[in-house]
């Protein structure tokens, strides 16, 4: 694995290895001194063409915990907003010696272009591209799901076989949904997508997931082990925004997760949301703040998963046999 561009590129062994490594990383984060020397002297560039404070901070924290030097490059207020191309930006970063480029871009495929163009020789990590992919989000979701649902006992080495996951909301515009559908399928979970027909892409039938238009039916019939609520942008209802649904109220009535629907979930089921939440639209405060919600934990797990990805890409964890290596190294180092 040279880059992390899409969860579709990961086989089950890759995915489990990343989750296991993330588990090792998380274990180190419980210590008083969280910093590991693993990537000392390496440079990680956060190249963000789209605002995302949360994802950027998560990657920045992950890189710093591994002792990498971190450069944050935000398109706002930089030469990019004056018309500098992706190519020139990438060449500049290459000249400065980036070992890894974490890229967030509004254009689907931009990380793929960066990785295959020869503009940079470093590892490219997709931190969200357009409506395409956000692989580390899906990995942290899988990590969270595994931690809660793949037990009992130590979950290391396990996949998500047999789990039923409902992903609810704006699938059409969601890179989180696309990343999760591939990854959860690879890990053996069954995915059902729940959305109004307008917010499902033409061609969704080819995805390894089932589709439903009715949240209540899915909750009653499928008894999902986890429900993942996607962010819905209010602007999407207006004519200029595409007119995807009649009103926020109607959306909430049909697809929002509220206390009533929360009560329909099985006892053990958990609630995920990639954030930032629209409280009162796709998720009510009751649901967001309930003990079922693992939304804050997802954020913490995000750091561990991103540490794992940076470690595996930069510290040459290419052979599966080396997956266990960080734990030992780190014990010594820490």
């Amino acid at each position: 694995m040279k880059h992390l561009l899409s969860t579709a590129d990961l086989d089950v062994a890759d995915a489990v290895r990343i989750l296991d490594t993330a588990g090792s990383m998380a274990a180190t984060q419980a210590r008083e001194i969280k910093k590991l020397p693993t990537l000392r002297g390496r440079t990680v560039v956060n190249l963000f063409f789209e605002d995302s404070t949360r994802t950027r901070i998560s990657f920045e924290t992950a890189a710093k915990r591994l002792s990498a030097d971190v450069i944050n490059f935000s398109a706002k207020g930089s030469s990019v907003s004056k018309g500098e191309s992706l190519k020139d930006t990438a060449l500049t970063l290459q000249a400065m010696g980036a070992d890894a480029v974490v890229i967030r871009h509004h254009a689907s495929g931009a990380p793929h272009t960066l990785a295959t163009s020869g503009w940079t020789h470093g590892a490219v990590i997709n931190a969200g591209d357009g409506m395409h992919q956000h692989p580390t989000q899906a990995l942290l979701d899988a990590y969270t799901l595994r931690r809660h649902l793949a037990g009992p006992g130590d979950v290391t080495g396990r996949d998500l076989t047999g789990l039923r996951i409902a992903i609810v909301g704006d699938v059409l515009h969601s890179r989180v949904a696309r990343s999760n559908v591939h990854l959860l399928h690879t890990l053996g979970a069954e995915v059902v997508l729940v959305a109004p027909p307008t917010l499902l892409p033409v061609g969704v039938g080819a995805w390894p997931a089932r589709v439903s238009y009715h949240l209540d039916e899915v909750l009653a019939d499928e008894k999902p082990d986890a429900i993942m609520m996607l962010r819905v942008q209010r602007e999407r209802m207006s004519s200029a925004g595409g007119g995807f649904f009649p009103s926020p109220l109607e959306y909430t009535r049909r697809y929002g997760l509220d206390a009533r629907r929360l009560a329909l979930l099985p006892e053990h089921a958990i609630v995920l949301h990639p954030g930032p939440m629209n409280r009162g639209l796709e998720i009510s405060a009751d649901a967001a703040d309930s003990t079922r919600a693992v939304i804050v934990e997802q954020v913490a797990n995000g750091v561990a998963v991103r540490m794992a990805v940076l470690y595996l890409l930069l510290a040459g964890g290419d052979a599966p046999a080396r997956a266990a290596a960080p734990t030992d190294d780190m014990k010594v180092d820490a």
């Binding site: 689907s108 495929g109 591209d129 357009g130 992919q133 696309r178 892409p201 033409v202 061609g203």
Partner: peptide, 13 residues
């Protein structure tokens, strides 16, 4: 083209 490939690539159809 809007179809299976655009759905996967996340490109507007």
């Amino acid at each position: 083209h809007e179809g299976v490939v655009s759905a996967e690539l996340g490109l507007a159809g």
